[in-house]
């Protein structure tokens, strides 16, 4: 921490400060450089370490309190199993191979749905963002559809596509589509007019305008949208599998079925695995996003690498 010292500023000729009753003397603020200024690299590393420690310590403390609450019987372990019990149960399920089919079933629905929805949302977002007439034609309808709860569409998709995997994949795709469409359209609309004018001056055709201006300028915010959408995709598939899982599998089915049969351990295992899958999926999307947009600033925060 840098020190601040305030001293009355003496007159330039070195005369004594003004006598009592006179206007206050001008103050001089002296600030010594702190560690961040003296050694920026070390300070950044220290900050990053602190962030990592906090990121681990906060959930760890909560988990420890939960464990303690169960062991001290402050809460009922049959309803809120201890983290240790959940971990042991989850590990046993992994070792026995009972968990993988559910994880795999969920991924088989989430990944294709996410890719389809992202692609469609991006293309439509580019078009509606760059072509006012297309925007005028589609935006009101898409806005209206956007607010429809996506899970409410599941029965309709079941009717249209039958009882297989397709309704689940389409549900994820539709959920992702709207997020990416809005994000892309907003990003394209936010591209400064000067960029477009410069491209026009250089004789860029429509394709070159997309290739060199609109796509690079819009991609960074779209990547942020993709991360949001990845979380939503996992969220929606878990709820959907809980409602109607085609083959009685998937993490959503695991959670809701465990709840139905009062198997709280399995339910919590499912919830934790969903959280892990969600984080990994989001991080994968972030990683791919950074590869696709090396020019974009990192949004990890001040300590970000």
């Amino acid at each position: 921490m840098s020190d601040q010292v305030t001293t009355p500023k003496t007159a330039e000729n070195g005369a004594a400060p003004a006598a009592e009753g006179a206007p206050p003397a001008e103050m001089l603020l002296v600030r010594r450089p702190g560690s961040a200024e003296l050694d920026p690299g070390k300070a950044r590393a220290r900050r990053r370490t602190l962030e990592i420690v906090l990121g681990i310590a906060v959930p760890l403390v909560l988990i420890l309190w939960w464990q303690l609450a169960v062991q001290q019987k402050w809460i009922d372990a049959r309803i809120y199993p201890a983290p240790q019990t959940i971990l042991e149960d989850g590990w046993q399920r992994l070792v026995d191979g009972k968990l993988w089919p559910d994880i795999w079933a969920t991924l088989k629905r989430v990944v294709p749905g996410f890719l389809l929805g992202s692609l469609a949302g991006y293309v439509v977002g580019l078009l509606t963002g760059s072509m006012p007439l297309v925007r005028a034609a589609l935006e009101p309808m898409l806005d209206a559809l956007y607010v429809v709860p996506k899970l409410a569409l599941l029965p309709i998709f079941l009717l249209i596509f039958g009882l297989g995997e397709t309704p689940q994949i389409v549900l994820v795709a539709v959920t992702v589509f709207f997020l990416i469409w809005i994000q892309t359209m907003a990003a394209v609309l936010a591209v400064p007019e000067g960029y477009r004018e410069a491209a026009t001056v250089f004789g860029a055709n429509r394709w070159q305008m997309y290739r060199h201006i609109l796509i690079p300028a819009s991609l960074p915010p779209v990547v942020v949208g993709l991360r949001l959408a990845s979380g939503m995709a996992v969220l929606v598939i878990v709820a959907s599998e809980g409602l109607a899982s085609p083959n009685n599998d998937g993490l959503g089915y695991l959670i809701f079925n465990a709840k139905n049969i009062f198997d709280n351990r399995a339910m919590y295992v499912g919830i934790i695995v969903v959280a892990i899958v969600g984080v990994l999926f989001s991080e994968l999307v972030r990683y791919i996003g950074r590869l696709l947009t090396p020019w974009a600033p990192d949004r990890r925060g001040p300590g970000g690498a």
């Binding site: 420890l64 464990q67 303690l68 169960v70 062991q71 001290q72 019987k73 009922d76 372990a77 049959r78 199993p81 201890a82 240790q84 019990t85």
Partner: peptide, 13 residues
């Protein structure tokens, strides 16, 4: 606190 309360979480059952 955890170390001093080495009670199996199943003991509630």
């Amino acid at each position: 606190l955890l170390a001093t309360s080495c009670v199996s979480s199943d003991d509630n059952a």
